Simulated assay, not measured.
Amino acid sequence: MGILLGLPIVILLTIFQSVVVSNIPLLHGTADLVLLVLAALALQERISTIYEWAVMAGILMGLVSAVPWFIPVFGYVGTVALARFLKRQVWQTPVLAMLLTTLSGSVVMLGMQMLALQAQEVPISIVESIDLVILPAVFLNVLLALPVYALTIDLTRSVYPEEVEV
């Protein structure tokens, strides 16, 4: 059931990311709403199919972006793996785990995208891409991390209610 629920959510997130969020830049960087939602959902123990959601989201974002399709797949799966690791092993405070996952996932994802575009011989200055794209995008992602986390907690509780032992 988790994959069937995840497919329309991932499709709607990809559409919203492509149409709305990408048109609200800070300098030239935009927030990655798909990354934020995947990181927030990965911190919820009730969702067991989060890796499948990350692969679906990565493939869809790879199809609508200028980077090769495998860059978003690796970035989203790595972000989900980091969030799961932080939730289970390191911290019991999910808000700090969300912020660290968002920060590191954004930097890694945007860095891989920059390297992929340079490998495709797109004329991009490294300093300008860091100053005008990566830092503003990371700032927007960290700024939106807590509201997205709060919304996903509420949605997760309504879709996956806690089991009550009698």
Rank of each mutant, 00 (worst) to 15 (best):
H28F: 15
D32F: 00
S129M: 12
P25I: 06
L26K: 08
V21K: 04
P136Q: 07
R46F: 04
K87Y: 08
L36G: 03
A66G: 15
L7C: 04
P136R: 07
Q118I: 15
L4E: 00
V138E: 01
P136W: 05
R157S: 11
L5M: 11
V10L: 03
G62P: 05
V108Q: 05
V138I: 13
G105I: 04
P25D: 09
D32H: 07
W53V: 04
F70T: 09
G6T: 03
R157G: 11
A54Y: 01
S48G: 14
P25Q: 07
Q92S: 13
P147A: 08
L117Q: 13
V80T: 06
F70N: 09
A40Y: 00
V20K: 08
S158L: 14
E45Q: 13
V164W: 10
N23C: 07
A119T: 14
A150C: 08
F74E: 04
G111F: 12
L60A: 11
V64G: 08
M61Y: 04
A137E: 02
Q17R: 07
L43V: 05
F139V: 11
L41D: 00
L144C: 06
L27S: 14
V138G: 01
E128G: 13
V10H: 00
V10Q: 00
I3A: 06
S22D: 13
N141F: 03
F74I: 15
M61W: 02
V10S: 00
L146I: 14
L38E: 00
P147S: 07
L115M: 15
V95S: 10
V21I: 15
F139P: 02
I59C: 06
T156E: 06
I50N: 00
N141I: 02
M112H: 06
L144H: 03
M109N: 06
L110S: 03
P94W: 06
T30H: 10
T156A: 12
L115H: 10
P161E: 06
L146M: 14
A137N: 04
A42L: 06
N23E: 12
I126M: 15
M112P: 06
G78A: 10
L33E: 02
T152I: 07
N23P: 05
